[in-house]
Amino acid sequence: PFGGAAGGGFDMQDIFDQFFGGGGRGRGGSRARQGQDLKTSIEIDLQEAYEGVEKELTITRPETCGECNGEGHPPGADSRTCPECEGRGQTTRVQQTPMGRVQQTTTCPRCEGEGTLYEETCSSCRGEGVVRNEATLSVEIPAGIDDGQTLRMEREGAPGENGGPNGDLLIEVSIEDHPDFDRDGADLQYHEAVTFPQVVFGDTIEVPTLDGPVELDVPSGTQSGETFRLKDKGMPRLRRRGSGDLYVTIQVYTPDSLTDEQRDALEAFAEASGEDIEVEQGFFEKLKNSL
């Protein structure tokens, strides 16, 4: 969906022109105006946001009519001087105010500032001077962009009025959720499941990053829920040097079932630890709660 760019307040040039008939105007007496900004959106995945990507985007937007070159009438159409403004493109009226008589000048409503009326209108744009066309654009999405940020493509918006420049195209970027990583600005978070013996004895494990797998040393005695930081393994910092970090949280995996050999070994472990419990009667639940 498209819409004009947000903007509020007063145009001081318009106020000045209305009261004093100021200059800076294009043909027919109407001031050149920049076209409206248009808005659209695009979705990418986290890997594309990490690396940066070029995407094609197809939009439907207003463009200057090619048949009449934005004039609103066929070339060579018969014309006559607008009787309301007498060809000036503006109408003037005098208003009595507490400060005295003020002359107010506005764009002629009949000829819309042209100063001329034409006997024919363009069949393609029906006299509007613009048509809606489909356009395919190539947009460069920089590495490190975050969800909800907006890119601006200059002069790819709606055409200007009276010779003014086109507006811009604003593209809001949304990033799909990743199955493994959670993002917090430039940092990433990852949860790695390990076994009880791995945290008891220590181990070197392989964890994924967006730039390929890396090794992580899990020291002996690591507790479930403990987090390790991998420096510069997060997202690139947009428009800044360096990258965020990857935080790996260790979670001890508790098996749902045991072999006879595993059960005997854990019963021996429980006995050696002074635990008077049966493995089948909640040892793992108690172990899980203690980690």
Rank of each mutant, 00 (worst) to 15 (best):
T106S: 13
E71G: 12
Q223F: 06
C125V: 04
T92K: 12
L46K: 01
S257N: 08
E67D: 08
G225D: 15
C85E: 00
C68W: 01
K233A: 03
A272P: 04
G66H: 09
G21V: 04
P1V: 05
R61T: 02
A272W: 08
L246R: 07
Q281F: 08
G21L: 13
G66L: 05
D180H: 09
G24I: 02
E48Q: 11
F16A: 14
P208C: 14
D177L: 11
S290W: 00
C125I: 02
A272R: 12
C125M: 05
R263H: 06
Q251M: 13
N289G: 14
E51R: 05
I171W: 03
Y190P: 00
T64I: 13
P197T: 08
L170M: 14
C65D: 14
E119S: 11
G244H: 04
G87L: 04
C82E: 15
T136H: 12
K39Y: 08
P109C: 09
M99H: 09
G3D: 07
G26F: 04
A77F: 11
P236C: 06
S273Q: 03
E192Y: 15
I141T: 02
A186H: 05
E43D: 14
A49P: 02
I44Y: 00
A77Y: 05
V252W: 06
E156K: 05
G129N: 02
N166F: 12
R126M: 12
K231H: 12
G167T: 03
E206M: 10
E267Q: 07
E43H: 06
V130N: 10
I42M: 09
I141W: 01
C65I: 06
L151S: 03
G167P: 00
D260K: 10
S290R: 04
F20H: 15
L246V: 12
D147Y: 08
A135R: 13
Q223H: 07
S273D: 04
V130P: 02
R263A: 08
A135H: 12
N69P: 00
G148A: 05
G274L: 11
Y247T: 13
R126N: 15
G22F: 13
G144P: 01
S30Q: 12
E67T: 07
G129E: 01
M99W: 08
V173D: 10
P75H: 10
P236Y: 10
C108R: 00
Y190E: 00
G7C: 09
E51P: 01
I250K: 01
K231A: 15
E267H: 04
A143R: 11
T259I: 09
V53E: 04
G24P: 02
T107E: 14
T64M: 13
H191R: 15
T150C: 10
S138M: 14
G8P: 00
T227E: 15
R101V: 07
C68M: 04
I277H: 02
E226K: 09
V199T: 15
Y50K: 04
I171D: 03
C111N: 07
G113M: 07
E140S: 12
Q104D: 05
D182R: 03
D245Q: 08
L46A: 01
D260N: 10
K286A: 09
R132G: 05
A77C: 13
E206A: 15
G29D: 01
